[in-house]
């Protein structure tokens, strides 16, 4: 139990920043550049770690609550989700709801800490963040409902069990494919990637997540970046397990397969970011509503 917990956390804490590195590398290769080294995210974190803080005089303690919650929540949520074939350290009936609501908690404090600066830009980003997640959250629930229908339990561990392999080949394969697409889009929204948000742009008016953390600095900014990387890995774990439900039975090969799946996901995100443009803002809700409708349709297919 303890060893499993340590392995789980070690995988998460060590590998998470790598995903961003892979995405950046993929984009660089698409652009015909060599790009930053794969470990650049780690160097960035280390650099931020050594820096000092700068606080606006408008801010209060809530400003620091954002990074704290943003780092803690993915850590805790990762305990509920299986990493590939490695089972989750903590698993109980109904933990999928807790999983969703933990991320909602981190959103609450990220947005509150953005509003704490009193900057209109950060307010703008905050408003967009809550609006888009209002549309993404029901989609996530529909996806989980489909998975719950196919399994015989209500914990993430049983939801993402080995029965998925047979489910892909049965009649439910069609809806699994649909929810895979939906889940990918939710992942892109929640982790603020193109085409919903641009993590690299420096035009404040077009950003969502980046603009909310504009005033953070030093270790606090590092915590936010690290928390975002952890969040991406935790949500990616859901997707990777759904797409590759194989298991070998030996923990090392299982772990390696999981990491390979995550790397593949990062490459896919990099490809999407390279070949797509950012959506116009009014289009984003339309796409999200479309995604939600797809997931509803997937649910109807399995409930039928």
């Amino acid at each position: 139990m303890i060893i499993r917990l340590i392995l789980h956390l070690a995988l998460l804490l060590l590998f998470a920043p790598m995903l961003n590195g892979i995405i950046i590398k993929t984009k660089a290769l698409f652009g015909g550049r060599i790009g930053a080294p794969l470990l650049q995210s780690y160097y960035d974190l280390a650099r931020l770690w050594r820096k000092g803080f700068v606080f606006s005089r408008t801010t209060t303690w809530v400003f620091l609550a954002g990074p704290v919650v943003g780092l803690t929540v993915p850590l805790l949520a990762s305990l509920l989700i299986p990493f590939g074939a490695l089972p989750a350290p903590i698993s109980f009936e109904g933990d999928l709801i807790l999983f969703v609501y933990l991320f909602a908690l981190s959103r609450f404090f990220t947005v509150a800490s953005a509003l704490d600066t009193g900057s209109s830009f950060e307010g703008m980003g905050a408003a967009r963040e809550v609006t888009f997640s209002c549309l993404a959250e029901p989609t996530l629930l529909f996806v989980l409902l489909v998975l719950a229908r196919l399994s015989d339990g209500l914990s993430l561990d049983t939801l993402l069990g080995s029965h998925l392999l047979t489910a892909w080949h049965s009649d439910a394969g069609a809806s699994l494919g649909l929810i895979l697409v939906c889940l990918f889009l939710v992942l892109l929204v929640e982790n603020s990637r193109i085409p919903f948000d641009d993590p690299n742009t420096h035009l404040e008016l077009t950003m969502i997540h980046e603009v909310m953390v504009l005033d953070h600095s030093g270790p606090a900014l590092g915590m936010i970046l690290y928390g975002a990387a952890l969040k991406m890995m935790v949500m990616g774990a859901l997707l990777v397990r759904l797409a590759f439900p194989w298991q070998t039975g030996w923990w090392l090969s299982d772990a390696l397969m999981f990491l390979a799946g995550l790397a593949g996901l990062a490459v896919l995100i990099g490809v999407v970011e390279s070949i797509m443009a950012r959506l116009r803002l009014p289009r984003v809700p339309q796409v999200l509503v479309g995604t939600m409708l797809l997931s509803i349709f997937a649910l109807v297919l399995v409930l039928r």
Binding site: L115, G123, P138
Partner: peptide
Amino acid sequence: APALALIGALALACFVKVFGIVFLG
């Protein structure tokens, strides 16, 4: 369940708005 999720997300949006606008900034 999805209806509750929508309600929850909207309630979050609303309360983060109230808290943020009234108490912060």
